[in-house]
Amino acid sequence: MQITIDIESSVPLFAQLIAQIKQAVQQGNKKPGDALPSIRQLANDLNLNNKTVAKAYRLLERDCVIQTRGYRGTYVHPDARENSLVDLNELVTEKLKSAIAALRASGATDSEIRVAFAAIMSSGDA
């Protein structure tokens, strides 16, 4: 089972990794409990920065597509197949769209929405 990334694609490298690992899980090429390469191995094979692969693995772990078992390495999560169908980016986009639509309907300007959004994100209150 191989994955391919395009370094000149407009899609970020970590996002390409996530998409391909999820695809491998959905197609059954990677089954629950299968071992995945270490961050260093994958980064060196693809000639990427370790941090890029680590970021992809972190997000996949958050989505319960993979799980890290300490020093034993990284494995495919038992519920990876179902979890790989959930797209959090899509959820975030949908929620934000409806929130922005509601704010505009109540009279808030785009610049007010932007300033408030940036303030909330930077304060960490949300």
């Binding site: 089972m1 191989q2 994955i3 391919t4 990334i5 395009d6 370094i7 000149e8 694609s9 391909q20 690992i21 491998a24 090429n29 990677k30 071992a35 995945l36 390469p37 270490s38 191995q41 994958l42 094979d45 693809l46 000639n47 990427l48 390495g73």
Partner: peptide
């Protein structure tokens, strides 16, 4: 511009 790697642990 493409790079390929095995998704198996060595």
């Amino acid at each position: 511009t493409t790079r390929t790697a095995e998704l198996n642990r060595r």
